[in-house]
């Protein structure tokens, strides 16, 4: 009988230099080193990546959709943060 289950890891892959690491999925592994090796086999069998990050899932703190209102709604009425809010005469071509 297995004593302890392998923890869950979140996998982030950079598909090529110049791009950011992106979340690809998760997997189970005994430690970070094994998580990296497994991530290579599970998520990059066809040249999907040039770099991998692994983070144990329990270390990720996520916002709760229930708080989306207070977190994200304040940005919705701040039109003055966008360039189209400002009037510029037509003669000014590039701005």
């Amino acid at each position: 009988m297995a004593t302890k289950n392998w923890p869950l890891w979140e996998i982030f892959v950079r598909s090529k230099n110049g791009l950011e690491h992106r979340h690809f999925g998760s997997l189970h592994a005994a430690d970070a080193e094994m998580a990296l090796e497994n991530a290579r086999d599970v998520y990059t069998r066809r040249n999907e990546g040039v770099s991998i990050w692994v983070v144990e899932s329990k270390h990720i703190t996520a916002s709760n959709p229930e708080n989306n209102g207070e977190l994200f709604e304040p940005a919705q009425d701040k039109v003055y943060r966008h360039p189209t809010f400002y009037d510029v005469p037509d003669e000014v071509k590039h701005m």
Binding site: N5, L8, G25, S26, D41, V42, Y43, R45
Partner: peptide, 23 residues
């Protein structure tokens, strides 16, 4: 066959986001 193992793992990982454990 290796792809099939991979597909199983992608899907288990998607399933676990619903609050069920791999075990």
């Amino acid at each position: 066959v290796q792809d099939e193992a991979g597909h199983g793992l992608y899907l288990y990982s998607a399933c676990e986001t619903l609050g069920v454990s791999r075990d």
